[in-house]
């Protein structure tokens, strides 16, 4: 019985890993397989005649480096702003009762209710007038608006999951409200906040339309490459796709520990 359980357990693990890894492997295969390789059928599983040509062309495209930097800047600002604004909002939703609380919860979601394509023209005009047009900071502001609902609602449920008694105990022992928050609640919530940060980062990293309308020279990587990717030959699409998922994977890998810690909280 035990052996059977172990078999099922490991089969599950293998299946889950394959679920994630096989598509990534095929993207890599396409990215390095050269121009003709992507059309070969049946596909060979092993990397035969690999070529770096597609990757090289990508990295040689003028401005890819700058676009990458812009993407990272925009994503970092988005991450910082959506936590800085979203976490307090979430805390307020979780700990205080105030009139219009439910309406507020809904209102937060409303920023996602309007399609960007409709807002694009007035938004761009406003950005030009304010002087935010063509800056990574301007792009980050829009991305923050997109990420904020998630940041606020996710952190609200995080704070809700942390027992109020812990905070009250801190008060009893002489902490002020702020101290109790910083010393007791925040450490417990940090893993979840890290997860929210990843989410904000990924939202910003992947967003195309706002990023391409609001910038001219200082494009983010997705805006710079993705708009043209859909119309490029297949092996370039694979190469571009590969290039775009690598930073996200690295980022998630770097903070995976805190993600697992968050599940720990949720399971308690």
């Amino acid at each position: 019985m035990n052996a059977l359980r172990r078999t099922v357990y490991f089969t599950g693990i293998v299946a889950l890993c394959a679920w994630v890894l096989v598509p990534i492997y095929f993207i890599a295969l396409g990215a390095f397989g050269g121009r003709i390789g992507v059309f070969r059928w049946p596909k060979s599983i092993l990397p035969t005649d690999t070529s770096l040509a597609a990757m090289q062309l990508f990295l040689q495209v003028e401005g890819v480096g700058q676009a990458m930097v812009n993407s990272i800047i925009a994503a970092c600002i988005t991450m910082a702003l959506s936590i800085a604004l979203g976490a307090p909002a979430g805390y307020a939703l979780a700990r205080f009762t105030f009139p219009g609380q439910n309406a507020y919860r809904l209102l937060i979601l409303l920023t996602r209710a309007f399609p960007l394509a409709i807002l694009a023209l007035p938004l761009t005009v406003a950005f030009i007038r304010i002087g935010l047009y063509d800056t990574a900071f301007g792009v980050a502001l829009i991305h923050t608006a997109l990420a904020l609902p998630f940041a606020a609602l996710v952190s609200a449920s995080l704070f809700q999951a942390i027992p109020r008694e812990l905070e009250e105990a801190a008060w009893v022992f002489g902490c002020t409200r702020l101290q109790a928050f910083l010393k007791v609640v925040l450490p417990l919530a940090l893993p979840g906040i890290a997860a929210t940060a990843i989410f904000a980062f990924v939202i910003s990293w992947n967003e195309v339309f706002a990023a391409s309308v609001l910038t001219v020279r200082n494009r983010t990587l997705t805006a710079y490459l993705l708009t043209v990717l859909a119309e490029s030959p297949l092996h370039f699409r694979f190469a571009g796709g590969f290039l775009l998922i690598v930073p996200s994977i690295v980022f998630i890998f770097a903070v995976r520990k805190y993600l697992f810690a968050m599940w720990g909280i949720a399971n308690r």
Partner: peptide, 30 residues
């Protein structure tokens, strides 16, 4: 808890600092 989680805090801090420093410095058109 705090000790174990401090890298996360550092990461967040780095993001905020990088964003705050680099954001306004990117010129509208070089």
């Amino acid at each position: 808890f705090t000790r174990r989680l401090s890298p996360a805090a550092r990461l967040m801090g780095a993001g905020i600092v990088a964003g705050a420093l680099l954001g306004p410095m990117v010129p509208a058109s070089a």
